[in-house]
């Protein structure tokens, strides 16, 4: 399972500052296990955003947002609502936000921070990767992750090594910051580049012992491992 936690509501309001009409998209995979997603959180977010003077143009749950084909196929039914939206708030891990951004022309904004990948149940990523940096910036980068796609994990724009839109490390590899630039230009959001934080806080990149051992789906701790041990004791 990919462990993710909800971004604080204040941060969500900030990252939604420029967008009035918001579509909320939820992943039916890991966020359910983490209790950071699912229909209940979508309803909660809808209520919070409505109170914060946003109009929620629609909500949808899709099983496994990391599966781009599924995201594309399912969102086809939401085209009318998406046409009435300024942005999509994606309640998933970083892979789901990137996969959604790759399938639609609207800004895709992360509702969660991703901490750790454990087990991988249901995970079906394409080129989108999430390193669980714990401080998701995808709302500023057009849904393209600079942490995993830039060879240097840069967060302040392209380095001097970018060549014809490719990376200095490998000439077949896209320069992440070239992709981000093109995407932000298409979205009319080049100003986002100025909003990126200068410094990163790397503390969230390494996860706490508790998050490291999260196996809430398999219930290993409680049922599979603890039960036989308990039996043995008797």
């Amino acid at each position: 399972m990919i462990v993710n936690v909800a971004k604080p509501m204040e941060e969500l309001k900030n990252l939604l500052a420029d967008y009035r009409r918001v579509f909320i998209l939820g992943c039916g995979g890991c966020p359910l296990g983490c209790e950071t997603g699912g229909p209940a959180r979508l309803e909660e977010l809808k209520a919070e955003l409505t109170r914060a003077d946003r109009s929620v143009s629609g909500t949808q749950m899709i099983d496994f947002l990391c599966n781009k084909a599924l995201v594309g196929a399912q969102l086809r039914y939401q085209v009318p609502a998406l046409k009435n939206s300024d942005a999509v708030l994606v309640v998933s891990c970083g892979v789901g936000v990137q996969a959604t951004a790759a399938m639609i022309d609207l800004p895709s904004l992360p509702a969660n921070n991703t901490l750790n990948s454990q087990g991988m149940q249901g995970l079906w990523p394409s080129v989108e990767r999430c390193d669980g940096c714990g401080d998701c910036l995808l709302h500023l980068t057009g849904g393209i992750c600079p942490i995993t796609r830039c060879a240097k994990n840069l967060i302040n724009g392209q380095c001097g090594g970018t060549h014809d839109g490719k990376c200095e490390v490998e000439n077949t590899r896209d320069c992440a910051w070239h992709l981000i630039y093109e995407k932000l230009k298409a979205l009319g959001k080049l100003d986002n580049l100025k909003k990126l934080p200068k410094l990163r806080d790397y503390r969230n990149w390494d996860v706490s012992d508790r998050e490291r051992h999260t196996t809430r789906w398999a219930l290993e701790e409680d049922q599979l491992y603890q039960a036989p041990k308990a039996v043995g004791k008797q």
Partner: peptide, 22 residues
């Protein structure tokens, strides 16, 4: 910012990039 280590004579080195030029 600096070139990536893979371009140099210690290509197996771990890169840092804790900071960048900005």
């Amino acid at each position: 910012t600096g070139d990536h280590p893979s371009l140099g004579d210690h290509p197996g080195a771990r890169c840092v990039f804790d900071l960048d030029s900005v």
